[in-house]
């Protein structure tokens, strides 16, 4: 039998492994004070783990009989955007919201096809300063200032 739907099979394998992992992790959760009756704290996630394995197996069986060809493809935008998001979050405390967010928005706009240098600078910085001020005035919350913290102090 030629397998046409590899995506579904991969989903099934991940689901089964995840279910087994969840069951194992749940069994480590033995509660120090059990109520004695009914389903214990670890019992519920264990049950979900078992169900996950069953559903994974059903999807695996379905994928073997499914004539639909899978078309799973991940574009370069996924790793690129995730790296940008991660850099933004990692540098939020040191660079501060205004700088890290401006850089993130500028990079995302570049990825989205914006090539006008003025707009690439003006829109991210304008948006960031506007949101920063709005949050400060509206909710009385100061988003991380990073190295600009001395201005506030």
């Amino acid at each position: 039998m030629k397998l046409k739907n590899r995506t579904d099979l991969a989903v099934a394998v991940i689901a089964v492994l995840f279910g087994i992992g969840l069951y194992y992790l749940s069994s480590q959760l033995a509660s120090p004070f059990s109520m004695g009756v009914g389903m214990p704290s670890e019992g519920y996630p264990q049950l979900l783990g078992i169900l996950m394995v069953i559903i994974g197996l059903i999807i695996a069986i379905e994928s073997m009989f499914n004539s639909k060809t899978s078309s799973f493809s991940v574009s370069r935008f996924l790793p690129l955007s995730f790296i940008l998001f991660a850099l933004f979050t990692y540098n939020l405390d040191s660079l501060g919201f205004i700088f890290s967010c401006t850089i993130l928005l500028c990079a995302i706009m570049l990825l989205a096809g914006e090539r006008n240098k003025f707009r690439l600078f003006a829109i991210p910085s304008g948006l960031t300063v506007f949101v920063f001020t709005l949050v400060y005035l509206g909710f009385n919350i100061i988003l991380p200032l990073g190295f600009l913290n001395f201005l506030y102090e």
């Binding site: 967010c101 993130l104 096809g113 829109i123 948006l127 960031t128 949101v131 919350i141």
Partner: peptide, 26 residues
Amino acid sequence: YATLLATVLILCSVGTYLVQSYTLDL
């Protein structure tokens, strides 16, 4: 189009951070 995506992104990140001010939420 690029302006729209930038607006959505800033709303998402600020909105998530505002709830508890945890970097872990981001």
